[in-house]
């Protein structure tokens, strides 16, 4: 065995080892930037908040450990439950109606024969991209009890003025209407992408079999849109339970707290620098929304 052969023989396992290490480590190195950002900006704040939720920290001075004190305070607090109940009621007013409306609009917009299709698509997304504060001001003027356009129109057919934003009976539906108007266009866009993934031959076959448009909608479109609908429901559930800006700008949570959503109630804790309670409130909301989302996933999961 010459000297060069010996060296080559020694170098081979080292090279194999290098290749092995490169192959083993490479995937981790590729995902490392994402993991680093994720840990820094998601995992760490989450854990920090969890720790905060067991203290009475108010932003300054030492934090005192209060155990489950913040959680028990919230769970026995009428305001917390009212916030959840308000969000639940808003969910009922918004999400089912929005899904039905969005499916109908998306199906209409997906019709190749529809004229000005592009215009309608843009028109539906405009409310979603318009700043909320501008919309809220329009809403306040439109729904004013004494000088609003809505009551003026209703007055023409003899309906007395309604306190849309000033009575607890009407404030929630009015806010729900604002949310519906603002976000339905976005859901329509999501559903449109789902519709475009449905194979046209299914409709052609249904046509040959003599199925009506409504039958096709119910038996082809809706089942095949199930995943997209599920995604939309989860997305809107999250949005409704986190809803903050709409009641903050339009009703300030009133009248009498009837539009104080779970998100707005959480904000009240934080603005009072009651950071421990705010953190506990956040975690309770996370648990609730997670449970709701998982429930919807189970409920709407395709059987296949």
């Amino acid at each position: 065995m010459t000297m060069s052969t010996t060296l080559r023989a020694r170098a081979l396992p080292r090279a194999r080892k290098g290749i092995f290490l490169t192959r083993t480590l490479a995937p981790y190195l590729f995902v490392l930037p994402f993991v680093a950002v994720f840990v820094a900006f998601s995992v760490y704040p989450l854990l920090f908040t969890l720790r905060l939720s067991f203290t009475n920290w108010r932003g300054i001075g030492p934090a005192e450990w209060v155990g489950l004190g913040n959680y028990s305070y919230l769970l026995t607090n009428a305001g917390f439950w009212q916030g959840l109940a308000n969000s639940g009621a808003l969910w009922l007013l918004i999400v089912p109606a929005q899904m039905v409306l969005a499916v109908i609009v998306a199906v209409l917009l997906n019709d190749m024969k529809l004229r000005l299709r592009g215009f309608y698509r843009v028109a539906f997304i405009v409310p979603f991209v318009t700043p909320l504060v501008a919309i809220a001001q329009i809403w306040i003027v439109l729904f004013d009890q004494n000088y609003g356009a809505i009551n003026s129109v209703l007055g023409l057919i003899g309906i007395p003025p309604i306190g849309w934003l000033t009575t607890s009976a009407w404030a929630k539906p009015t806010l729900a209407l604002l949310f519906l108007w603002k976000t339905t266009g976005f859901i329509v866009i999501i559903l449109l992408s789902g519709l475009q993934a449905i194979d046209d031959t299914l409709y052609e076959a249904a046509d040959l079999d003599g199925a009506s448009r409504s039958r096709q909608l119910w038996s082809i479109t809706v089942p095949l849109l199930r995943r997209t609908l599920l995604f939309s429901v989860v997305l809107q559930t999250l949005a409704v339970f986190q809803m903050f800006a709409e009641p903050f700008v339009v009703t300030q949570g009133g009248p009498y707290g009837s539009t104080t959503t779970a998100g707005l109630y959480l904000y009240d804790n934080i603005t009072r620098a009651d950071l421990g309670t705010g953190a506990a409130n956040s975690f309770l909301l996370v648990i609730l929304v997670l449970a709701l989302s998982l429930g919807f996933v189970r409920l709407l999961r395709p059987k296949d």
Binding site: V39, V43, L47, R51, T55, G59, I60, A63
Partner: peptide
């Protein structure tokens, strides 16, 4: 272990504005 370390380290609660 990482979760425990992350929850425990970082800016101490109580550091701000003293």
């Amino acid at each position: 272990a990482l979760a425990l370390v992350l929850a425990g380290c970082g800016p101490s609660i109580g550091a701000g504005g003293t």
